[in-house]
Nucleic acid binder design. Structure first.
Lengths: 329, 329
DNA sequence: CTGAAAGCGCTTACAG
DNA sequence: CTGAAAGCGCTTACAG
């Protein structure tokens, strides 16, 4: 049996109340008593039960994090940041990989509720996760969830704009966009709008190809092939995801295109991992650390009952200039 | 105030006991009562409090998972598998990124203890995490922790052997190994031993370069440079990590080496991500799904008090033959 | 088939 | 400075 506060009390010759006080450093306790209690805890190897504590305090210091999957570099990095920041602030992370499945998200959401998490950070591209009633602290990343839930994201429109202009300035004549699942309301939609706007302003005709799901690369290759069949004269591609960009680059090279001479490519996300693996790939860098930090801080404010000034935060992106759009390495 | 079982009882006109029974589907309850209770739960939007449940049952259905960081593709993928399998079995994952820091690992371990996790899955390459007393269900991945904790890993010796032989068979004359931090007891050590054995058997002199930490790529480049300064005639490199292999490949190419003509390279881990991003890279594939599955299943057996037949499980690896060791793509 | 009571391990007013 | 009592929300023998 695990020792409990009572056992400590017995050994120390005090009441459970006193032990609890020592544990929480609350109220006045003589230093002699304190020592006795600490010694007793040491002696019987006492470890406090946070479940019981949380139950009474109605505060679990648990944060639920719902993302598509940590196996995707963007979310792997994002989650690592979130967890680190939470840890620094004394919060623990309950991890949920939704794999983009709406019903999984729902089940996870309810599970987190049952587990009395203090709040949740959620990245979902599906509609209707939250019903009107559902009132507990939450922060959404990238995608609007419901009226009372703040949204943190990087500036996807700006990203799309920068990317499109980069290709334009690099001299591309036929610029095509590849985006993710058209049925999902991803932040990439704004990248597409920006692309379309930039193209139109430049007097070009925008054209976007949609792959089923950026995470499952195998199923994407057919769309990429289609793109090159339809437009062998393509000389600029803006992909809304680095993995997609790299996949496209590989396929193009297998077809004989030389990058960046015949074809320029720009990706999106710019995680540390990808920049390290493919430093040559021009890409839009999302500030994952800032997104994580803002999300966690906002959530903790909500949890502490503070009024939020900002319901929607957009963080600036930057561009990583690589060889795939013609820059020196 | 969140509704509790008492509130449901009041609305349904029954006792809390009965509500609990309906909730847990335990004992006989008339279907009429059942309906009343369900209706009441619906009406007041009742969500059970798992903290209270866990406290009484001494079972939290919580699994702690300690890894270096989900931002590394291998661990991102591993954690995704672990979480998925846990979820399927009704367990929740408390995520801990230790960043290889021994004191973080200790703190996490204790935190998990306080939170009454049913068990933990831990990947650490530091010594002394667990003191003799510490008795709760745990499974270690890759690295021996203590006598009663089963270890699951893939066959690192086999992996090192296959990799080394691949280079040998590809005709390399000077084969060098790059490994991670020599101070950490990583599974990569076994890969090194295998490399040394294979080299010696072939009448070669093994030589290993150690980078500070495979995860922090920036700091590794100096060692890689050193390697090429020391051995410009190197024509085969076995890197104990794909990121390292790719970094090496990039540097070699920047130096003018042509891969695979002048230099053959083989990596390690072979995650889905890397194979998709760098299909050309020959690499040893660790069976991450099987590792995850075996770890979770073993842990659940421990939790259920079953006696474990196997204290140490080694899963076979396979090789992904790519262009970097001269295979057709 | 259903309920009153005690308890999971902790904490916090309330006394003293 | 310290303790007895009640309660956090749930569950499970024990009665009936």
């Amino acid at each position: 049996m695990k020792p409990k506060i009572q056992d400590v009390a017995k050994v120390a010759g005090v009441s459970p109340t006193t032990v609890s006080r020592v544990l929480n450093d609350r109220g006045y306790i003589s230093s002699k008593t304190k020592e006795k209690v600490f010694a007793a805890m040491e002696e019987i190897n006492y470890v406090p039960n946070d479940l019981a504590r949380s139950l009474y305090n109605k505060r679990s210091y648990l944060i639920g994090v719902i993302v598509p999957s940590t196996s995707h570099p963007f979310f792997g990095e994002l989650v690592a940041h979130i967890e680190k920041i939470c840890n620094e602030k004394g919060y623990k992370v309950l991890l949920c990989n939704s794999l983009h499945e709406a019903d999984k998200e729902k089940k996870y959401w309810e599970m987190l509720h049952r587990n009395q998490v203090d709040g949740v950070i959620v990245v979902t591209y599906n509609r209707g996760l939250v019903d009107k009633q559902q009132q507990f602290p939450a922060v959404a990343i990238d995608h609007y969830l419901s009226e009372n839930i703040p949204v943190v994201s990087s500036d996807n429109f700006q990203g799309g704009e920068i990317a499109s202009k980069e290709l334009l300035e690099a001299g591309c004549r036929k610029i095509i966009h590849i985006n993710g699942d058209a049925n999902l309301e991803t932040p990439a939609n704004n990248r597409q709008y920006a692309y379309e706007k930039v193209m139109q302003e430049a007097g070009r005709t925008p054209e976007t190809y949609h792959v089923p799901d950026v995470a499952f690369l195998e199923s994407n290759i057919d769309i990429i092939k289609q793109l090159f069949r339809d437009h062998p004269d393509v000389d600029g591609i803006f992909a809304s995801d680095d993995l997609l960009a790299i996949r496209t680059l590989q396929y193009a090279e297998s077809l004989g295109y030389r990058v960046p001479d015949d074809l320029k490519i720009i990706g999106y996300d710019g995680t540390n991992l990808i920049r390290s693996l493919y430093p040559n790939l021009t890409t839009i860098i999302q500030p994952t650390y800032q997104i994580a930090a803002y999300a966690v801080n906002t959530l903790l404010q909500e949890i502490d009952g503070e009024l939020l000034a900002v319901k929607e935060k957009t963080l600036p992106v930057s561009i990583w200039l690589g060889k795939t759009t013609g820059h020196a390495s």
